[in-house]
Design a binder for these strands. Structure first.
Length: 553
RNA sequence: GCGCCCAUAGCUCAAUUGGAUAGAGUGUUGGACUUCGAAUCCAAAGGUUGCAGGUUCGAUUCCUGCUGGGCGCACCA
């Protein structure tokens, strides 16, 4: 918001210089404006003089001096100063900040939501774990990241749909059926010499087999038929568990898209026909291949195996084609980082469908290392020694789990310290944020008890907020706009987490230094107004993260 | 062997996408509750940003080559 006004001040000076002939008429450079790291360097800063220097053959300092002389304060700046080797620093008036706070108070927090999406439709597909076993902690990370990203995009002008792709066709489901069949036979009293290693080892398979008997499901005569029945039954049961876990984790999907539905509608065959017609697919060694190499630096990949079975890649193309059919402008896929080798062929297939490959944005979720007593806990779905999302939630709670998942860039390794997440102490960062929210609420309680009319606070005189820390807090509140904007444009949900920690740090510091409820009713009122909006931003930020904002703790 | 990601304070991580003196938390040391919640705050200490070059006014960020770690390279999912 202010950034645009700063840009206008610079543009004004450039125009002036062009008119005076200090700068050639045909020279146009769009100024880059940033917020300096150090507060001493002003509220905004521009490096425009550096960009102009080689073209004007003058030193950056000299150019900065000329520009500043021709600049106006634009009604928002206290002063504009040259600094360093050619930076131009803008110092904003307290009054400007106060006016903006007034604006947020009058118009609501949504004025801090930037319109980055401009109404574009986004499909965000995440988790999409095969229904062959419960969600483990890695899926939990993907669930948290996807959910939070959806919240962010929802606030920044996108239409978002959350979707879970259910791989309910294929070999793995069959393996689950086989596993269930064997466990079922065990329960029938049959001796199984050795339970094969390639089958699912988890305890949940036994539970499902038991449920089968409990529900009186009719089992066919032959093994082949039985496995088919059990594949469907078992994967449905597992899926129910997954949905329940996700809901408990606070993640709700708009749509569960079944892979089998693509086959039911003949969508996979249609897609393959399309590719063949375009000559993007060819037959070799009795298999059907996709010409990945035509679009990307990658090898050609098999769509239909020589035994006639279709690969996952084939249905994946059909699935993404379907997404475009449904009118989405941007497709976001969250994958485990071990699938990164899959990106080129997927991008290639998008191009083959005649779409822009940049319409597909793949976010890779790096693995989570779970630490217990400072030592890593191993996990693998097959072996059954995984740690489930449910277990982690039960142990550390939903708030801590979600917060921890969002403290890292999603493509960076995450060390999840169970002991730390479990601590209800100051070492746990999630409490740091929640505590601020509760603390502000507590101030409101006391103010109310002292007979302060909280309704009248809305009309407080914001110009009474003149303490350095108060101006800093206002800046922090207004920064929400830029953080949301950057977070949405870069698809980086973790920025919200860092922002909240920083914002809340400013508050705690202010709280310890300055009393809010003082004798002067005007000042008290103004401070309560500031905290009211601050609390609203904290609450909204926590809501984005899917973390609760308690009034007491 | 080829490709992708990572390497920053003792530990876990940031650094506004190329900006100014590289910042937090944690741990260590010392301090602050008769007043709105001490799950908090203040201060000190902690660095050749893995190594070596290159690009330029300026590099943790971009390029090249090493070293070390993770992950991929199926007619698997």
């Amino acid at each position: 918001m202010l950034r645009k006004k700063i840009a206008a001040i610079i543009e004004g000076a450039l125009d002036q210089c062009r008119a005076e002939g200090t700068i050639p008429h045909d020279l146009h450079i769009s100024p880059f404006i940033e917020i300096p790291r150090e507060e001493g360097n002003g509220d905004y800063s521009s490096n425009i003089a550096f960009s102009l220097a080689p073209k004007l053959r003058k030193s950056p300092q000299e150019i900065a001096g000329i520009l500043i002389r021709t600049m106006t304060l634009g009604g928002i700046c206290e002063k504009i100063e040259p600094a360093g080797k050619g930076f131009i620093n803008f110092y904003i008036k307290d009054r400007t900040w106060q006016d903006d706070l007034r604006l947020v108070c009058d118009q609501g927090i949504s004025v801090l939501y930037p319109d980055a999406g401009m109404g574009k439709k986004v499909l965000i597909e995440f988790v999409s774990s095969n229904p062959t076993g419960p969600l483990h902690i890695g899926h939990g990370r993907g669930a948290a990241v996807g959910d939070v990203l959806a919240h962010i995009l929802n606030r920044t002008g996108y239409h978002v749909v959350r979707e879970y792709y259910v791989n309910d066709a294929g070999r793995q489901i069959e393996t689950l059926g086989e596993s269930t069949y064997l466990r079922w036979k065990e329960l029938q009293g049959e001796k199984i010499d050795e339970y094969p290693k390639h089958l699912y080892q988890g305890e949940y398979v036994r539970d499902i087999a038991a449920l089968l008997a409990e529900k009186g499901i009719k089992i066919p005569e032959t093994e082949g038929e039985s496995v088919k029945v059990m594949s469907v039954f078992a994967s449905d049961e597992v899926m129910k568990g997954i949905v329940a876990d996700l809901e408990a984790f606070g993640v709700h999907f708009d749509n569960y898209f079944r892979e089998t539905s693509l086959f039911d509608r003949n969508a996979v065959n249609e897609t393959l026909e399309f590719l063949k017609k375009k000559d993007y697919a060819y037959e070799k060694d009795e298999a059907l291949w996709f010409r990945t190499s035509l679009f990307e630096k990658d090898e050609d990949r098999v769509l239909v195996k020589s035994d006639g079975e279709k690969t996952y890649f084939a249905s994946d193309i059909a699935y993404h084609r379907d997404k475009f059919y449904r009118g989405f402008d941007i497709l976001i896929d969250l994958w485990g980082s071990d699938h990164h080798g899959y990106i080129p062929r997927m991008k290639a297939s998008i191009e083959a469908l005649g779409k822009d490959k940049d319409a597909l944005k793949v976010l890779l979720i790096q693995f989570v290392t779970l630490l217990k007593d400072g030592k890593p806990v191993g996990m693998s779905t097959r072996s059954g020694e995984f740690t489930t999302l449910r277990e982690v939630m039960d142990e550390v709670g939903r708030d801590a789990a979600r917060f921890f998942f969002l403290m890292r860039k999603c493509d960076a390794h995450l060390e999840f310290d169970l002991d730390l997440a479990k601590k209800t102490s100051n070492e746990n960062p999630v409490y740091y944020v929640q505590y601020a929210h509760a603390r502000i609420e507590s101030i409101f309680r006391v103010a109310g008890e002292n007979g302060f009319d909280m309704e009248s606070v809305k009309n407080a005189d914001v110009s009474l907020l003149s303490v350095k820390e108060e101006i800093s807090l206002i800046k922090g509140i207004l920064q929400f706009y830029a953080v949301l904007d950057g977070s949405a444009r870069s698809f980086e949900p973790h920025r919200i987490t860092f922002y909240l920690l920083e914002l809340v740090g400013k508050f705690h510091s202010y709280y310890n230094k300055t009393r809010v409820l003082v004798d002067d009713a005007g000042i008290t009122s103004a401070r309560l107004l500031l905290l009211r909006i601050l609390q609203e931003v904290i609450r909204d930020g926590l809501q984005i993260l899917g973390v609760s904002a308690p009034d007491k703790m």
